[in-house]
Amino acid sequence: MKQPLRHFLLLLCLALAGPVAAADIEIHDAWIREAPPGAPMLAGYLCVLNRGQTPATLTGVTSPRFAHVMMHRTETRDGVARMRHLAEVTLDPGRQECFAPGGMHLMMPAPEQPLRAGDQVELTLHFADGDSRRVVAAVRTP
């Protein structure tokens, strides 16, 4: 096969595979809590809805503003609050999972340049099927 044709077919495959999966995922209400000055960690929240027919697995989040983004869940048992790392979050078909205060949240180290209410931060959500979705999170107070 000639090189340009192979490239074309590869692009066609990507075009068919990528956007279809991406269209099935909806992300909304993304925001980052404005943190006290000097607070070493920030928390981010958002909702992810799987409109597809098959389960989707969120495997991680990245952002150009943060060295890394961790997925965590706060669990309060017997009055003790515990924060635990989540390797992935599975979204069943038709299901919505929300990262919200007191529950699942994104944890990021505060960037050197502090974020203030009104700032906008890009987050990219990565899924197990190789798909990824970008969303803009507004920094605000709850």
Partner: peptide, 13 residues
């Protein structure tokens, strides 16, 4: 503690 980004700011707020 201040490294706690979720529960502690929630409680103080």
């Amino acid at each position: 503690y201040t490294h706690c980004p979720d529960v502690c700011p929630n409680a103080l707020g």
